[in-house]
Design a protein around this nucleic acid. Structure first.
Length: 103
DNA sequence: GAGATGACGGGCT
DNA sequence: AAGCCCGCCATCT
C-alpha cells in the first residue's frame, strides 16, 4: 500500500456532501485509531485545487481547526454551509446529525 | 537516520 | 462547558 496520506485522501473523497467526519474517525476507519494527528498532517500537504473534499474533515468538537492562513477556515465554513451543513452560534456543527458513519 | 512538525484526541482541572 | 497539558503517529527536512 501507498502512504498513509493517500489512504486518507481516498477515504475523504468518499464522504458525501452535507456530511462531515472527524480526524480521529478517519484514522479509525483506516485502522489506526491513534493517528488522528497524522490525518491532519496529511491534509496540510494537500495542493490547492485538489479534488479531495478536505472541508468535510473537522475536529472532535465539531469545529473547524484554526490554521494559517486565517481565511482558510472561513472558506471551509462557506463550503460546508453551501452543502447544507449548519453551524451554531459557537461556530460548531452538531456531530450527532452531520457525522458520516462510513460506507 | 534522528529530530522536528502539526488542520488531533482524551482526560483532568 | 471550555481550556490546558501530554501522549500519539506518519511524514518531512
Amino acid at each position: 500500500m501507498r502512504h498513509f496520506y493517500e489512504q486518507v485522501y481516498e477515504l475523504v473523497q468518499q464522504v458525501p456532501p452535507g456530511k462531515v467526519v472527524t480526524y480521529g474517525q478517519v484514522a479509525a476507519l483506516l485502522g489506526s485509531p491513534r493517528s488522528a494527528r497524522a490525518v491532519g498532517y496529511a491534509l496540510r500537504y494537500l495542493p490547492r485545487g485538489t479534488d479531495v473534499p478536505w472541508q468535510r474533515v473537522i475536529n472532535h468538537r465539531g469545529e473547524i481547526s484554526p490554521r494559517f492562513p486565517a481565511e482558510s477556515p472561513l472558506i471551509q465554513r462557506l463550503l460546508l454551509e453551501s452543502e447544507g451543513v449548519v453551524f451554531d452560534e459557537n461556530d460548531q456543527v452538531d456531530l450527532k446529525v452531520y457525522r458520516w458513519q462510513g460506507e
